[in-house]
């Protein structure tokens, strides 16, 4: 383990990005319970955040930010399960409720009060659809929690490499229209001293990336264009240096769109958490 950590560190010195997780240990709720501690916040990682290689980088960025701000947090680790969101949107309420009730049982056993998550789909489901099944928590999207941490003086954000850069924000449907949060991500971009530019369709009028409603897991129906291509064109029209996202699925869709347009060398697609972590060289 030690050697592995050292190796990672060497890579980090060269790249200054995507440092490994060797600097601190992310604990699970089970670890904490065994140690007799109750963490203040549960970091709900989500399926993409746990398994998708690209999304894992976002997960690590969030963990580093929480660690940096001295937030007492833990994950569920192998006790976490799908929230059931894609099942519910696909129409399988049985499977959704089974997943939800199992998750609620686990979380209630750990007396979870506050949850932060990097996935707007998990966020929406945990926040809005779990209460009817006995799961009542304060649920925050990571951009909301980071905004709170800055407001409380627990975290300071400087522009770093993004200072003055043109950054646009792609609103995830389940954060924006779904839950009315348009400001937190934008406030954070402004904290980076970046130039926040809006696509022609933004906020309430933002265009979906094409992944929601369980579309992520199937081929698109017959049409003349992919939704993510349509959305990428909105971004290309304003030529930002970075398309900021707040959802691992949007991130995938936009990254694919930019690749397809052969613009990967000009436009980066990054989660707000990654921008903040990179700016602070975490």
């Amino acid at each position: 383990m030690v050697r592995r950590g050292r190796l990672r560190k060497q890579i980090v010195v060269i790249g200054q990005k995507n440092k490994g997780m060797a600097e601190f240990q992310v604990r699970t709720m089970a670890d904490c319970m065994a140690a007799g501690e109750t963490p203040e916040v549960l970091f709900w990682v989500g399926c993409a955040g746990s398994f998708d290689d690209r999304a894992k980088k976002i997960t690590k960025a969030i963990a580093k930010i929480l660690h940096k701000a001295n937030v007492s947090f833990a994950i569920l680790g192998s006790e976490e399960s799908c929230t059931g969101d894609p099942a519910k949107r696909a129409g399988n309420e049985f499977l959704f409720q089974m997943m939800a009730m199992q998750n609620i049982e686990v979380m209630n056993a750990y007396e979870v009060k506050k949850i932060v998550t990097g996935c707007p789909h998990c966020f929406n489901t945990l926040k809005n659809e779990y209460p009817a099944l006995g799961g009542n928590y304060e649920v925050l999207h990571h951009t909301q929690l980071i905004q709170d941490l800055i407001a409380q003086g627990k975290l300071s954000v400087e522009g770093g490499e993004f200072k003055g850069k043109k950054i646009t924000f792609h609103d995830p449907c389940y954060l924006g229209r779904g839950n009315g949060e348009y400001e937190a991500p934008r406030v954070l971009i402004q904290k980076l001293d970046a130039e926040l530019v809006e696509m022609k369709r933004c906020k309430t009028n933002g265009l979906c990336c094409g992944a929601g409603g369980a579309q992520m897991f199937k081929e698109a129906e017959k049409g003349n264009k992919e939704v993510n291509v349509e959305r990428t064109e909105d971004a290309l029209a304003i030529q930002p240096a970075v398309i900021a996202t707040g959802c691992p699925f949007c991130n995938t869709m936009m990254t694919d769109g930019i690749k397809l347009a052969d613009q990967s060398h000009v436009i980066a697609v990054k989660d707000i958490a990654e921008l903040i972590a990179e700016a602070a060289e975490l």
């Binding site: 997780m21 240990q25 992310v26 699970t28 990682v45 399926c47 955040g49 746990s50 398994f51 894992k56 997960t59 690590k60 963990a63 994950i75 569920l76 680790g77 192998s78 976490e80 399960s81 799908c82 059931g84 894609p86 099942a87 499977l95 089974m98 997943m99 992520m216 897991f217």
Partner: peptide
């Protein structure tokens, strides 16, 4: 989702591997 608790065929036990 039913078998592994995720929409993809990954093992639930590996959820914390990123740490």
């Amino acid at each position: 989702i039913e078998n592994n608790g995720a929409p993809w065929a990954f093992a639930q036990a590996d959820r914390g591997n990123w740490t």
